[in-house]
Design a binder for these strands. Structure first.
Length: 288
DNA sequence: CACTTGACCTGTCCGC
DNA sequence: TGCGGACAGGTCAAGT
């Protein structure tokens, strides 16, 4: 899925497009994709007005005028694409996994608005949208357990070290992917930040020098900020609110670069498996 | 408790 | 061309 930079890019896009628009009708063909009891859908979703769009971790929150919110997790392959019916969409449009015509076979939910449509596409059906009272959004189990926002001002190095060190016997990669430690890091940015900090992803947390962990946090912030600037990473499915791809992967140092040279050394990047995930390393600068 | 593994799904790619 | 298996940006529940 979209990791933090992709979800943030979608949030910015949607917040320029959706507020003020009204939801006239909703079509969904897969129960998990839109989780809302029929009665609540009638009362709190239909004919509501969109107020604003927020993000916490990798989750989007669309607040409605009815004091209900749509809480959205895109998981691996979810997309949220807004198309103004007056716009031409398709031919020549730089899209990923979008033929240029929506709905397509991966479309799970369509929100018909008073102006344009919002499409929720999700090839693998892992993603979900839940209709929840706005005041109860953060009662969701995921939000109760999720760690701090790495780009927030009050997230300090000390807090990072304290939280990470609790996972003494875990590999550092599994620790970064654990959303209860820190919000927003996924497979792409874990590999990118670990390369930046010269840490082997399979290193146990307790064996890593504190100075390197400090660098690691700086690298996480660096790759997040760079990626947000580039509109996120498009590998296969990710597109922003207008169906556009992100360009971060053009700047990636190791992710999906196996067989190519490490930017630091005349050394070939390898793909290995850590924490059950495909993992990219330079064997020379990232040693155990 | 800390930590790892399989399940949820569809689609694509690679080797036989 | 077909078939089986591995794999894909994320989380959960259930296992050790």
């Amino acid at each position: 899925m979209p990791e933090l930079p992709e979800v943030e890019t979608i949030r910015v896009g949607l917040s320029l497009l959706l507020p003020g628009k009204e939801i006239l009708s909703v079509v969904s063909d897969w129960p998990k994709s839109l989780q809302a009891p029929e009665s609540e859908k009638e009362t709190f979703l239909l004919n509501s007005k969109i107020i604003n769009v927020r993000r916490r971790a990798k989750v989007l929150i669309i607040d409605l005028s009815t004091d209900y919110s749509l809480v959205i997790h895109l998981k691996m392959t979810g997309q949220l694409v807004y198309i103004n019916s007056l716009e031409r969409f398709g031919a020549g449009h730089p899209t990923a996994s979008l033929s240029g015509q929506l709905p397509d076979k991966s479309t799970r939910v369509i929100f018909k608005l008073n102006q344009g449509n919002l499409f929720f596409n999700d090839q693998r059906k892992f993603g979900w949208i839940k209709l929840i009272p706005t005041s109860e959004v953060f009662n969701l189990k995921f939000f109760q357990k999720v760690g701090p926002e790495p780009l927030s001002k009050n997230f300090t190095n000390d807090i990072f070290l304290e939280r990470v060190k609790k996972r003494a016997n875990s590999t550092i990669k599994a620790t970064l992917l654990d959303q209860t430690v820190l919000a927003g890091v996924g497979n792409i940015y874990a590999d990118e930040a670990l390369w930046g900090a010269k840490i082997h992803p399979a290193s146990r947390v307790k064996d890593i020098q504190e100075a390197k962990l400090k660098t690691l946090l700086e690298e996480i912030k660096y790759v997040f900020n760079l990626s947000i600037e580039k509109g996120g990473s498009t590998d296969k499915n990710y597109v922003d609110a207008k169906g556009k791809r992100g360009s971060y992967l053009e700047f990636a140092r190791v992710f999906r670069k196996e067989g190519q040279f490490c930017p630091r050394h005349h050394e070939i990047i390898q793909k290995i498996r850590v924490a059950g995930r495909g993992t990219h390393i330079c064997p020379k600068c990232q040693q155990m």
